[in-house]
Design a protein around this nucleic acid. Sequence first.
DNA 1: CTGAAAGCGCTTACAG
DNA 2: CTGAAAGCGCTTACAG
Lengths: 352, 352
Amino acid sequence: MVVTPSRRPTMRDVARRAGVSFKTVSRVVNDETGVSSELVGRVEKAVTQLGYRPDDRARRLRQRGSHTGTIGFVLVDVANPFFSSILRGIEEVARHRGSLVLAGSSDGLVEREHQLVGAFIARRVDGLVVVSVDPTASVLRQEIERGTPVVFLDLETRGVRADLVRSDHRGGARAATAHLLAAGHRDIAFFGDDPAIFSAKERRAGFRQAMRAAGIDVPVHRIVTGAHPPDAWRGIMTDYLRRPDPPTAIFTAQNFVTLGAARALHELSLQHRIAQIGFDDVELADLVEPGISVVPQQPFVLGGRAAELLFERIGGADHPAVREIVRCNVVARGSGELPPDPLRTTGVAARR
Amino acid sequence: MVVTPSRRPTMRDVARRAGVSFKTVSRVVNDETGVSSELVGRVEKAVTQLGYRPDDRARRLRQRGSHTGTIGFVLVDVANPFFSSILRGIEEVARHRGSLVLAGSSDGLVEREHQLVGAFIARRVDGLVVVSVDPTASVLRQEIERGTPVVFLDLETRGVRADLVRSDHRGGARAATAHLLAAGHRDIAFFGDDPAIFSAKERRAGFRQAMRAAGIDVPVHRIVTGAHPPDAWRGIMTDYLRRPDPPTAIFTAQNFVTLGAARALHELSLQHRIAQIGFDDVELADLVEPGISVVPQQPFVLGGRAAELLFERIGGADHPAVREIVRCNVVARGSGELPPDPLRTTGVAARR
DNA sequence: CTGAAAGCGCTTACAG
DNA sequence: CTGAAAGCGCTTACAG
């Protein structure tokens, strides 16, 4: 049986087959009252025989409020468990609201983010959850001003009035740094994502604040940031730690960075000699030896809250912009509690 | 400045402002030739001032082939890195084709899967990639017969003619089991997902085949399957391993099962005494002590191939159904090469 | 080069 | 209880 991709049946096709007007089909399909049971039967039979399925686009085009029952989620990389957990949180809320989720990865590229936002708007999503690299972009700002509901996730915005939900990146980073300082470290290196991303910049700021508060000057080479593919961090870390005068502790401020660093430390057999604390949790961090101390976020919760705020707006709420900031605390597992290595070749000694 | 959610401007609004017919606006918006540069200028100005963005739904409704530039992906759980990596693979291909991806998690529930498929079709996606629990469902089958492109991912189907891409679950499971047998194990327990899921059933079948081939009868209590939330497996495994007469090796046939088992083994300090091999890779499995041996899949590749096949169909290809099966091999890291524990309290001894 | 008409698949608002 | 007309926002197919 070769399948011939036939034209999809429309209401008129069903009407013809059932011998009624297409308006009657519309009534039956929409469970409207006041159709004789005989016609209902004929229409339903025709619907089944033809495999008719109403076209939501056409339906909603004509309707009043004209929601599409679809929301958009612009994120950085859906293959990153942090983002896919957020997506799941959004999805759960969307499902209860009868909505579907369009998701797209920007990889932190401004251009791709704009493309995604534009494509979502062209498809008339009812609203957007955005982890933005460029929150003041004209496309997005104009849409927000025009009334399209937008909730920013995990970032702050300037000059744009919209709801936002995010972790307290700076506070979490301060706590992580303070944790290492409390273990006696003074030579701590920071490794993080591209500071063009709000959360990355904030974490770096938190690190600097905590170090300054402890009266420690951080040399420039102790702060390493950049947009690298997930796999690249291991090599970057290995190279860094192999140089003379390594730090006594490292703060790896993103999950892929944390993973790369953990692998580098193990490769160099330094995992018991250099302390590590990460931002974002990673799978099996509790089982590695030593366990990797981290400042976890709650992606599922972040996503769920963002979606709830979004649907409030979609539902017509017009209260002032909401700003929800979720605290982040240290989870100690071992790696972040290691004291400074007494045997370490200090910078001065190594250079002499 | 309070924002009043105004009606979104249409082509007619732009036309009025520019003092032209709305057809001229259509020409300018679609970069058609043959509009005087003066009118082009006026229209473009009005477009910018009003923040006009064409409605893709209306546009495509009227167009010939009438693609929506959107595909749907029905999966089990997007918070599972296996699926989110597939999604990323699909997304990459979709982006190059100018398409967006609607994704939805079924949690392996037949009803939710049907809802998702129905909602996707109502929105007239151009095609579907489906990790199905119920591949012969009438909704899906009727759509396929009608000509909607569908690619099944990670499963086989009966009575439905559609492209499919999947891992060789059975072969991979046989290889995993053979790997444990080669290390000298004969008392191996299998732990896996709900056999309603094709891949779960296949892996169990592979396990049984390999055991049978080795002349070993597998007692029923050595096969544990079920649909459990990710977090539940640790407890299930702990309970199981605490009982008298534990197996000398375990085959954990899904990533969340593997994680739960690894935690249980460590909790009971059995990680060096009971061998483990998992299906699907998990993060940091290489760094745990011992490293967790697994049979990894290539989710990003699976997703990419599925999407490529889908877009071929969307593009009109009508070759016979394609069936791509990706081999799975063992990655040895330590846990799967542990020999049977000579000190183990055997079942008989323990019961006496 | 520009525009008025018809139609995509449906719903809304009116008639009978 | 049933249906013919108008319209959602756009494109196609024809005129001028």
